[in-house]
Amino acid sequence: MITQEYFDSEVRRIIAAAISEDVGDGDHSSLACIPENARGKAKLLVKDKGIIGGVNFAKKVFAYIDKSLRIDVLIEDGTEVTFGDIVMYVEGPSQSILKAERTVLNAMQRMSAIATKTRLYVNLVKGTKTKILDTRKTTPGIRVLEKWAVKIGGGENHRFALYDMIMLKDNHIDFAGGITKAIETTKQYLRETGKDLQIMVEARNLIEVEEILRNDGVYRILLDNFDYEDTRKAVKLIGDKCLIESSGNINETTIRHYAECGVNYISCGALTHSVHNMDLSLKAVN
């Protein structure tokens, strides 16, 4: 998994890129009509319901724009909110507040949507041993924020990217010449490079599960698009030999059934690729 140092550097990069994209050579709307020394106060208003996400990110954006801005947080990340709630107040130079506004809102609306969907899925499997994972199906350039939002919602992060876990999916297996060949060459690669990476292998059916189990060194098996019956059979076959993950078009209707099959994890791309942004706004306080 990624280090805190890398996480922090990615957040800084995202903020810098977002402000560069949005502000360019200046917020000329504000520069044109608001005096440089004008001060103001604004509230971040919820116009929806769900789980709020991105509060701590917003604080970092405001600090990046102007360290003199004062933030008064009323509702923390991961809290359930509803229409009319005020998440925070920000006070200071009016031009600075407006310069940060769109980056704060865009990020928080998306992060809140992801946190809300994640919390729903986590609640649906409550009482089972199954944990909810995200995937790499994220928006290019802001993966850190989207995976952060999953954590806020109570889920867990899968591998962050291609470099922090070996994941042998169907195409890797087919290109490598089969499951056993893919695992053997992977273990050889890790020995030669000295890399300490866990190996995860995707199975498309029970026959492939059995072949994976004949190979040592596999940390987790991914059951891809298995039905309930085959998932239960796979869980029985695998036992405690390695961890088990289910994935593939799992939704609100089916997720509890898969969890009750006994899998350790369910990964859902929908947590990040199929959400409807929460409606938030930043309004001046007179």
Rank of each mutant, 00 (worst) to 15 (best):
A100I: 06
T138P: 10
K131Q: 15
V87W: 00
N123C: 07
I86A: 01
L124P: 00
V125N: 03
G141K: 03
V104R: 03
R136C: 11
I86N: 00
T103C: 15
Y89Q: 00
L120Q: 15
T139G: 06
Y89F: 15
N106C: 04
I132D: 08
T138D: 10
S96W: 05
Y89S: 00
T118Y: 09
Y121N: 13
R102I: 07
G127Q: 01
E91P: 00
T128L: 00
M111R: 02
T130F: 01
L98G: 05
R110C: 12
I86V: 15
V90C: 05
L120C: 10
T128Q: 04
A115E: 02
T103G: 07
Y89H: 10
K126V: 09
P140E: 08
I97F: 02
T128S: 14
T118N: 06
V90W: 00
T138R: 09
V104E: 04
I132W: 08
I114M: 09
S112T: 02
K137Q: 13
R119V: 03
T118A: 08
A107F: 14
I132H: 07
P93M: 12
V87F: 00
P93V: 10
M111H: 04
E101C: 06
A100D: 06
K117E: 14
L124A: 12
Q95C: 10
D134G: 12
M111W: 02
